[in-house]
Write a protein that binds this DNA or RNA. Structure first.
Lengths: 213, 213
DNA sequence: TTGCCCTCTGTGACTTTATCACTGAAGCAA
DNA sequence: TTGCTTCAGTGATAAAGTCACAGAGGGCAA
């Protein structure tokens, strides 16, 4: 049964109706939930797993905009749902994900009848705007070596020691070219902070923050 | 009296209440409507003029995120309003602006009682997310000379022939350094596409698109 | 096992952009 | 005029993006 904190905002009656109307689906890694241009079928609630949202520019380059995990709402879908426009980005499952979709009719009803539901939706929107503003700042003003180290460090603190990712994919994460990633990683390897192998990056000695001082 | 398309979404009774409760204010160019860290006092409706929203990163650099004009809603404020967090960006008046502020209590009531009002708010959110996603792509993948020319061209098509702006300000528009803007403008002057003077840029012969081909 | 092929990685050469440091010009006010 | 402040121009250098290509790794079919 669907378990998502936004359901907690509903009173018993609405929650029951909602649980009756939605069904949860499971998606394997690599599955594309929606791609650019597609139309929106409802508001996806992420119950678990990890989904990345990325866009591909006119230049042909891609960049990861943000990730969604357990208890997240796919805020991006709301705009498409309300205006009928197609998605501008695509969503790809990273870790096997569980998703429930709230159909438009039900969404409208929940927005109408629950102030707490509205609040949760608005909060989600606010957070997403914040995320994107921070990303703009990051992309515009931060050095690529710092951004790469921060990205790796974030994985390291999640307990991951060996990452399975290609330089190309890492380039999309950071919005840069594969060659740039390769060169920066090689430099990190020279400093003994990582060990490289085809499709793998082993984190051996990343130092937070101070490596660029 | 306040004139804003979102008021059209309200029925007569709610509109009357709203008009009773809000008052419009005028702000001169340069006026700061809110700055980073400040808390939100209500949802601003832009009735006229032009307001730019920009943020300053940890790096100390600024970048213009988007602009608001007549009939816009300051979507950014909603998140702050609902969560109580401070603003992450600042809003500065460019052309003398007229603004009405919907206090939180009234906003909650309108969200509760008008489906059309909700729709308008959601649409506004959706558009803003789109804007920011496009900006990320722009900043990450487009060349600075193209972005500068596009920026100037947009002004040219608005009928402006002489822009009053410094290279520093133009740098903030594009999220780059003043020197970069100076050099690129100098190159455009060599190609007879602009004439430069202290604090002014005269657009003499900008060619759309093909200059970089 | 061998050979083939496709993907991934490494790297040189060059362009574009960012940063730093400094110079000089334009406007303003005492 | 002198002095001050802001704005613009530019050389030197570092970082990042682009292009082109070489070679390594790994899977798979013969």
């Amino acid at each position: 049964m669907a378990k998502h904190s936004i359901l907690e905002t509903l009173n018993d009656s609405l929650r029951k109706d909602t649980l009756d109307e939605i069904s949860t689906m499971r998606f394997p890694p690599g599955q594309v939930l929606f791609s650019a241009g597609e139309h929106c079928r409802g508001l996806p609630l992420v119950l678990g797993g990890s989904i990345k949202v990325q866009m591909t520019g006119v230049s042909g380059h891609g960049i990861v905009l943000y990730r969604m995990g357990a208890d997240d709402i796919c805020t991006l879908s709301i705009g498409c749902l309300m205006t009928g426009r197609g998605y501008r980005a695509e969503a790809v499952v990273e870790e096997a994900a569980e998703v429930a979709i709230i159909p438009k009719g039900l969404f409208d009803r929940l927005m109408d009848q629950s102030a707490d539901f509205r609040l949760a939706i608005m909060e989600s929107y606010g957070r997403r705007l914040d995320d994107l503003m921070l990303l703009v700042e990051e992309v515009a003003f931060h050095r690529m070596d710092e951004r790469l180290e921060e990205w790796l460090l974030a994985r390291a603190t999640q307990g991951q020691r060996v990452l399975t990712i290609t330089h190309q994919e890492l380039g999309v994460e950071l919005g840069t070219a594969r060659e740039v990633v390769s060169r920066l990683l090689k430099e990190l390897e020279r400093r003994q902070q990582v060990k490289l192998a085809r499709g793998k990056i082993e984190l051996t000695g990343l130092v937070s923050g101070l490596t660029t001082a």
